[in-house]
Amino acid sequence: MYRMPTLKRRIKSWGFTPFVAISLVILLMPLFVFSFWPIVEGFILSFFRGSSVLRPVDEFVKLRNYKDMLSDRIFRTAIVNTFKFSLMVLPMNILLSLPIALGLNTITRFREALRSAYFLPAVTSVVAVSIVWIYLYNPHVGLINTVVEVLGLMPQAWLSDPKWALFSIAVMWVWRDLGYNVVVFLAGLQGIPTYFYEAARIDGANGFQLFRYITVPLLRPVMQFVVIMTAISSFKVFDPIQVMTSGGPMRATTNLVFYVYEHAFEYLKMNQAAAASVVLFGIILLITLLQLFHFRTQWEY
């Protein structure tokens, strides 16, 4: 006689115990509700136009929101600024955090204290930090122009001049994000077995060769992680832009996230904001996949 499989048996047939299954459901539920479902909702919203901000799915408009967005010069500026910002932040961050991590790896005294000091900005409120940097960048009483003048250079309106505004925020963001990458690089460096270095030194390798032929290749998985995370974080930056420049002057600091925020919560155009956020999602996904593919390693040490 055929017996209907109970839920318990069915779960067991998948190789889970009921306890594991329940734990998984509990763990995946928030991820589904707060991450996956909003992504799906946002995607759906981007193909509709609403009669009001509270009824945003009244009319199916196919790709109209995307067409409107592409013809919007602010959107095009936002895309360019998003990439420009990332191209400023990524090399600055890697070129600063890796040498700092290498330096910390060679010392034993004060390493923990220095590591904490570098990490401190990463755990400080972005808004508070942004306000502090507004004062640093103040063209009249700010520390940065004081230093610039001491060096015999011309003081600048760092946040009010469209030539400097995005770069100024990028510098602030690198300062804030640096500690995180220092800690990750340091963990990666400490994970490289010392006998590789010892063997190379016996073979007569100098410091640069040790770095070039041992550290760099063995740090590749960590580098992959750092590059992806830094790129994603630079694409998603919002708080300092909102606090320090509100996307100005002349849209010089309007990036894609600010564009989404502005359309959703200032202009109340949820559908267009959803379309822009789908584009942002696509860009981040593409870059992540490209980097994963490019940095893929087939070996372990």
Binding site: I134, N138, P139, A157, L159, S160, M244, T245, S246, G248, P249
Partner: peptide
């Protein structure tokens, strides 16, 4: 800002 130069545009 241009002819009279009595102000500069700021984000403050």
């Amino acid at each position: 800002t241009a002819a009279h130069q009595v102000m500069a545009r700021e984000t403050t």
